[in-house]
């Protein structure tokens, strides 16, 4: 089956969703990501959805689940690149993705991860 690739960059896992995902594919991504977080001890997951033309309740729920599972595994999730029309539709649908951190693009998402208290304290320790 077709899978969404997960790239590792330092402490961060990077996922760029570039295809219109069917439900099973979204569930597979959820499973693959949680496995990779625990294998790689990643501290952050960055999900780029700038290519997604829609996010419906199923994909929205999957994104919320990923953020929740990552948090339990001690990693933070940042969702980046949501198109304005997708944001408008998602809120009107009744989902505001509580508990999911967002940033406008990959660059800002990376800044957010670097500036998070968990990473900062670790860098401070390492630089001492």
């Amino acid at each position: 089956m077709e899978r969404i690739p997960i790239l590792k960059m330092g402490d961060c896992l990077l996922v760029t969703v570039q295809v219109d995902m069917h439900d099973q594919m979204a569930l597979t991504l959820q499973d693959d990501l949680t496995t990779r977080i625990s294998q790689t001890k990643a501290k952050a997951v960055l999900i780029d959805i700038s290519a997604l033309e829609i996010v419906d309740s199923f994909i929205g729920r999957m994104l919320g689940n990923i953020a929740g599972m990552a948090r339990i595994l001690d990693a933070q999730t940042v969702l980046v690149g949501m198109r304005p029309a997708v944001a408008i539709t998602l809120v009107e649908l009744g989902m505001s993705l509580p508990g999911v951190r967002t940033a406008l693009n990959v660059e800002r998402g990376m800044d957010l991860i670097r500036m998070s208290p968990a990473n900062r304290s670790r860098h401070d320790r390492e630089s001492r």
């Binding site: 033309e53 829609i54 198109r83 408008i88 998602l90």
Partner: peptide, 28 residues
């Protein structure tokens, strides 16, 4: 179905926001 509805919404001259709404509703 999502892709077909998108194609018809574009053909009907819907704005990007309305296309997104119709396709999302169709998906649900």
């Amino acid at each position: 179905v999502r892709q077909a509805v998108r194609k018809w919404a574009v053909a009907a001259g819907f704005s990007i926001i309305d296309q997104t709404k119709v396709v999302t509703a169709a998906s649900e």
